[in-house]
Design a protein around this nucleic acid. Structure first.
Length: 878
RNA sequence: GCCCGCCUGGCGGAAUGGUAGACGCAGCGGACUUAAAAUCCGCAGUCCGCAAGGGCGUGGGGGUUCGAGUCCCCCGGCGGGCACCA
């Protein structure tokens, strides 16, 4: 042993070899850019295998957050991997740039929504670029670009001509103080978020897309979406909500405002004999008729109007009703009549806005009838119950059984009774069997400035006139005043005054703008030819659509995805494209979560405001930095600004680099699940990036020249080669299955194996092969480090890793010589045996029985059954 | 309220119905260092036991099976969506 103090060390000690990410990451980003590694043509050449990777585009809030980092890292891994697998990959990025926050900024800070939005986009683009994503930025656009929303107006008009657009009355949240339509999120406990005024429902004439025309197809086609998560398909199916039932017309005992009948929709015509009341929505004409002559009915209707328009608010409200005094005749029971109530739980939008109540067999009806003392007549007998003494408990009975108390339906089961009841209704001309859909038409009108203007003109003489194509785009005016309440477009002094395109007389522009869901319903198609004059170029969309892999949050499982599916069908039927389904593969990622912190006064604290202590027993506690007051460490929850539990990706990239951020966000857990962001986890990921760099850098001087074949190795070198090729196979399988955390784990194990490899013949070549493999296998996840390693191992190489094909495992090195089998007795593990791969069953059973601990457990008892699962397990039943 | 998920060591998680806890984080012990950081080596579900080994263990309860984290039923907790947030 040499005395270290007397010997100089010309070489740096291994731990001082460091990967300089600050220098390397921008360098490799520039190299990819310089070689246009990610550019693809609008129309791929014949024979190219196209692959369209798309992540849900972000709302430009101003800063990227960890949810974005996760989303775009996942997409980038797929894009880089598919590129390496020989696909021509399109991977674009854009901005979902219209929406409420820009208007809020305008009202709060006096900044123009456009200025605010484009500044935010510039910031976020710079942040995204630092992540080293393989995005083709030349395709970028924002939905608030007139070049985009002008084309959207063209689509709107084409949809109108195709009969997919209608005007209808519908209800909105109205703030009577601010004179504004409120979004559901702006209604807090029934009051306007700014004014605090009680919100009312108000009826407006609005624009609708006829999504219900496609309801059967949207439901049916879910079956063909093989690469969508089942739960998303299930949620969509439930949302579309096909149900079979009947429309039943009830004759009113006396004519009300010229009406003689009320029509209800029911899925349970079998329970008609259990009817005890009829209920209508507060918006139903009968409710209006009652209100017109009964002030208390009017008061109840007005109260219902204060309930908000969201389904959750309506269904969670206490069930309340008002007896109108009207009565209806029962279709089957001669002479029987029942009261007509107005009920707050009946939805005008669903079915006919009226129901018949059968409390014995419907939970909501039961609750309502119990509250108001209405009759409860059971008509479905649960199996095994006695019809004579049968009484309901404190709940409705909603399952199948034998019909009783029901005249001609008695004795039938529920499905048969439904059919018979419908036959009888049809025979009497009092109803028909129908299929009803829960899905409603898509109301796209918004009374706001920062959105795509709906291209129509209202003329007193000609009615609603579409803006002629040659007058498109209808541009938003720049000079808008946000100081007045209401819609700035409506308030604008000149913008809305135009000549009618049809008769030339003074007319008025439509001042409603589009729901921002419209913007996001076709952006994936626009990316295929982002600068085209038309909304899309046929050759480009025909070549690139559908999106092969779409990635985004589960929170979009229903609305955005369903609207996009509708829009694609609409574009198909108006000749813009050919496909019906926009997204062939869908992956829904989980949220990024973080601990939350509160000070003694209950105020939320940012993580950097907290100083942590670790007690010897492992419990963590915290104090407010500087103040030394105790901090409550709260639940791990979705990162949000209001809870201040956010972590700024920019700061993480500054400190550790993009590769580390990407590696950690992939390594921690499966991408479909929520993940917790922890500082310790990032630090661990950073250490790993340094570790592989060091592994390569320290081994380099001992490696044979690049290109030295590793074939024919034996002993330790062969073992390492087996690990290399098994890792290639395992990482490939993991990436194919979106199991990125497993891919990361395999690469960790691989790094451990390279570090542990003993010296031996051929080890140099085996190590070179292993190190080159680890660089290339980790390249979809850590692209900059991969390039750095590759350039270290293969200086002067023509291609970047980003341009190389994926590695193939050598099947000869995947085969094992022997395998370990678990031996169980009665399903409990008692030992393991090592057998040659080609051992026959008799040999295996003999070896298993001979195992010492197995012998002891069997203890001479007769073996009744021997089970052998090849390659896995042997089980003895004694 | 309705629809859809999720629940495994101190923590994140792994596991075609077949050795539960791979891999990582945190922790502990050791090496290196004047020291620290960094790095390297090792230990580690839990209880009993010197050990060999055994008991218990995948939110709780039941079931199917030679065998259940995995399949079925019930219950609990947490989360997403509910049509004008995106």
């Amino acid at each position: 042993m040499t005395d270290a103090s007397t010997v100089s060390h010309p070489d740096p000690r291994p731990q001082e070899i460091r990967h300089d990410f600050k220098n390397a990451e921008p360098r490799w980003q520039a190299a990819w850019e310089g070689r246009a590694c990610f550019a693809v043509p609008d129309v791929p050449p014949a024979g190219a295998k196209k692959y369209y990777v798309l992540e849900m585009f972000p709302y430009p809030s101003g800063k990227i957050h960890m949810g974005h980092v996760r989303n775009y890292t996942l997409g980038d891994v797929v894009a880089r991997y598919k590129r390496a697998r020989g696909h021509m990959v399109m991977h674009p990025m854009g901005w979902d740039a219209f929406g409420l926050p820009a208007e809020n900024a305008a009202r709060e800070r006096g900044i123009h929504p456009g200025t605010w939005t484009y500044q935010n986009i510039a910031n976020m683009r710079a942040e995204l670029k630092r992540m080293g994503l393989s995005i083709e930025w030349a395709r970028e656009f924002a939905t608030c670009d007139v070049e985009y929303y002008g084309r959207q107006q063209k689509l709107f008009l084409d949809f109108f001509k195709a009969g997919l657009v209608e005007r209808k009355e519908s209800w909105v949240n109205w703030d009577p103080v601010d004179g504004t339509v409120l979004a559901n999120e702006q209604v807090i406990d029934g009051r306007g978020w700014r004014s605090g005024a009680l919100v009312e429902k108000k009826q407006l004439s609005q624009w609708f897309f006829s999504i219900t025309k496609y309801a059967p197809d949207l439901l049916e086609a879910l079956g063909s979406l093989d690469r969508w998560p089942d739960r998303v398909k299930l949620m969509q199916a439930n949302w579309i909500g096909r149900s079979e039932g009947a429309r039943v017309r009830f004759r009113l005992a006396a004519t009300v405002a010229g009406t003689e009948e009320v029509e209800v929709f029911t899925t349970r015509p079998d329970t008609l004999f259990g009817m005890s009341f009829l209920a209508v929505a507060a918006e139903h004409p009968l409710a209006a008729a009652a209100a017109a002559r009964d002030p208390r009915a009017a008061e109840f209707v007005a109260e219902c109007r204060r309930m908000g328009t969201s389904e959750a608010a309506i269904e969670q409200a206490e069930k309340r009703g008002y007896d109108t005094g009207f009565r209806v005749a029962h279709p089957f029971i001669e002479g029987a009549t029942f009261p007509v109530w107005i009920a707050n739980f009946v939805l005008m939008e669903y079915g006919t806005g009226a129901i018949f109540g059968c409390p014995a067999h419907d939970e909501r009806d039961f609750e309502f009838a119990t509250k108001y003392g209405l009759g409860i007549t059971p008509v479905v007998l649960p199996p095994g119950a006695n019809p004579a003494g049968f009484a309901l408990g404190d709940k409705a009975y909603t399952d199948d059984g034998a019909i009783f108390n029901s005249g001609f339906l008695d004795g039938l089961d529920v499905p048969a009774a439904k059919r018979r009841a419908i036959e009888a209704l049809e025979a009497k001309g009092q109803g028909t069997g129908v299929v009803n859909w829960r899905l409603r038409d898509w109301g796209v009108s918004r009374q706001r400035y920062w959105g795509c203007p709906i291209p129509f003109i209202h003329c007193e003489a000609c009615g609603v006139v579409p803006v002629p194509d040659e007058q498109l785009p209808v541009k938003l005016p720049e000079d808008v005043d946000f100081s007045k309440p209401g819609n700035p477009l409506d308030n604008h002094p000149t913008w809305k005054h135009v000549a009618c395109p049809s008769c030339g007389k003074p007319a008025r522009r439509e001042t409603d703008t589009c729901d921002t869901f419209v913007d996001s319903s076709w952006y994936f198609a626009r990316f295929c030819s982002p600068r085209a004059e038309a909304p899309v170029t046929r050759a480009a969309v025909d070549a690139w659509l559908p999106v092969d892999q779409y990635i985004g949050g589960i929170e979009h499982a229903i609305l955005h995805l369903l609207y996009s599916r509708f829009f694609t069908r609409g574009m198909r039927d108006t000749g813009h494209l050919t496909v019906a389904e926009p997204f062939e593969g869908l992956f829904t990622q989980g949220m990024v979560t973080h601990e939350s912190y509160k000070d003694p006064e209950g105020r939320w604290l940012y993580p950097e405001e907290v100083e942590f202590n670790l007690a010897p027993d492992g419990t963590r506690s915290g104090v407010v930095k500087g103040a030394n007051t105790p901090v409550t460490i709260g639940r791990v929850e979705a990162m949000s600004k209001s809870k201040r539990n956010t972590v700024d990706p920019g700061a993480i990239i500054d400190k550790y680099g993009a590769d580390t951020a990407r590696w950690f966000i992939l390594s921690d857990n499966p991408p479909e699940r929520d993940m917790e962001w922890t500082e310790a986890g990032v630090a661990g990921a950073y250490r790993f990036t340094q570790r592989i760099y060091r592994l390569a850098a320290t081994a380099l001087p001992g490696l044979p020249p690049a290109g030295t074949p590793a074939e024919g190795a034996a002993g330790a070198a062969r073992k390492l080669r087996q690990v290399t090729h098994r890792t290639i196979a395992a990482v490939t399988e993991a990436l194919d299955g979106f199991a990125f955390n497993v891919a990361v784990a395999r690469i960790h194990e691989f790094a451990n194996a390279i570090g542990d490899a003993a010296e031996g013949d051929g080890m140099g070549a085996a190590k070179r092969e292993a190190l080159e493999a680890i660089a290339r296998l980790s390249s979809p996840m850590m692209p900059h480090l991969a390039e750095e390693l590759w350039s270290l191992l293969r200086p002067g190489e023509e291609n970047l890793v980003a341009q190389l094909p994926w590695l193939e495992a050598d099947p000869a090195l995947l085969k094992a010589e022997s395998l370990t089998l678990a031996v169980q007795v009665l399903g409990k593990l008692r030992g393991t045996i090592e057998v040659p791969v080609d051992a026959d069953e008799a040999t295996i059973f003999a070896a298993a029985e001979a195992e010492e601990n197995v012998q002891r457990t069997i203890a001479g008892k007769p073996i009744r059954k021997r089970i052998h699962v090849p390659g896995r397990v042997v089980n003895f039943v004694v």
